[in-house]
């Protein structure tokens, strides 16, 4: 089911949580709402789920206005960061809950409920835990049960609020791959909220980057990483170096008040100046992190550190040490002025 959001606004007192949001969610896609805490992503999710009401604006499910519909009438599955399982019920009863509270006419027989719950528990690979209580499960298991519970009512839309936020790194990684596979199986329109860019880029079909109640950019993971639309997106997704006018003027030939954004892996490093625009710097720190080597350098008259990432191969071919004097030059950069944006590519 597709979701259309038009000119949506939401304030909490004087604080504007959502500022004129427009968004189109395609049927069957897995969308990530990505942003720092307090950017409004959770508010947006809760408005879609019916847990909160928007002040103004339109919210359509498959072209149908649902703003007046209660959470229980929206047929939306919701997964919470802290699971929100019913702790006095067994795993089985938790998953069966949505089936048991259906109005009498629509309610399935006990045998049918049993069959469907076991089917869902098998889907999340936890059928062997059906008679346990939530307190006896690990965090990852609880979240999978929460997901099975949400899926039990066959929702048309699945909303996940920081679903992996409370889990440790290893389990997180496993679960997000698992979620991706599950989504490929079920094709249910899903939106998940996260502040972890790696998670958003790895799992989602499209990413919505939010900041201070506004949408900064909507695009595929590749688009938001490779072609950030705003300085915020540049800084929020991946690492970036900022060069002020004085330093970047030789490459950008841009003399206004502007900032050049350069990814750490888009910088060339060389012992001899590449050309007369190269910036002389001193190596301050060399750190090898797995497959990449991170080098921090500083221009002679500045204490600001510039981060450069080299592949291990490249670093081994021309090793650097602290205190070495070298030259740097960006292969690719982007300049943002106040109010407008220009893209330049170095030749």
């Amino acid at each position: 089911m597709s979701i259309t959001i038009e000119n949506l606004n939401k304030s909490f007192g004087a604080y504007k949580a959502l500022d004129n949001i427009n968004l189109e969610v395609n049927s069957g896609e897995l969308l990530a709402l990505l942003g720092p805490s307090g950017c409004g992503k959770t508010s947006l999710l809760r408005i879609i789920g019916g847990m909160e009401l928007a002040d103004t604006g339109k919210l359509l499910f498959h072209g149908e206005d649902v703003r007046q519909r209660d959470a229980r009438e929206r047929n939306v599955g919701f997964v919470f960061q802290h699971y929100a399982l019913f702790r006095h019920m067994t795993v089985f009863e938790n998953v069966a809950f949505g089936l048991r509270v259906k109005p009498k006419k629509e309610r399935h027989s006990e045998a049918e409920i049993k069959r469907r719950v076991h089917e869902l528990l098998s889907l999340v690979q936890l059928d062997f835990l059906h008679d346990r209580y939530p307190a006896q499960l690990s965090g990852g298991q609880r979240q999978r049960i929460a997901l099975a519970r949400a899926l039990a009512v066959e929702p048309k839309i699945l909303l996940l609020d920081e679903p992996f936020g409370a889990l440790d790194a290893q389990v997180r990684k496993e679960l997000r791959r698992w979620l991706r596979r599950l989504h490929d199986e079920l094709h249910i329109t899903s939106i998940f909220v996260t502040h972890d860019q790696e998670e958003a880029l790895e799992v989602a079909d499209r990413v919505v980057v939010m900041n201070k109640g506004r949408i900064e950019q909507v695009g595929t993971p590749d688009e938001v990483y490779a072609a950030p639309a705003t300085p915020f997106v540049y800084q929020f997704i991946g690492n970036v170096n900022l060069f002020h006018s004085r330093d970047h003027a030789p490459w950008t030939e841009h003399h206004g008040d502007a900032v050049a954004y350069v990814r750490p892996h888009d910088i060339d490093i060389s012992v001899l100046p590449q050309d007369d625009t190269a910036l002389p710097v001193e190596v301050k720190l060399v750190r090898a992190i797995g497959s990449v080597v991170r080098v921090e350098v500083a221009a002679d008259d500045s204490s600001e550190l510039i981060e450069i990432e080299l592949s291990r191969e490249r670093f081994d071919a021309a090793p650097l040490a602290n205190g070495d004097r070298v030259f740097i030059r960006p292969r690719q950069f982007r300049v943002f002025e106040t109010g407008e944006q220009h893209e330049f590519s170095a030749t």
């Binding site: 929206r74 939306v76 929100a84 019913f86 809950f97 949505g98 509270v101």
Partner: peptide, 27 residues
């Protein structure tokens, strides 16, 4: 009893009485 648990119950289609009877009261 977290508000989230009640919201979870509501999103699963439970009415107010069901939420009280099945979720809050047992707790």
């Amino acid at each position: 009893v977290e508000a989230e648990v009640e919201e979870a119950a509501a999103s699963l289609g439970a009415g107010r009485w069901d939420v009280f009877r099945r979720v809050i009261f047992p707790a």
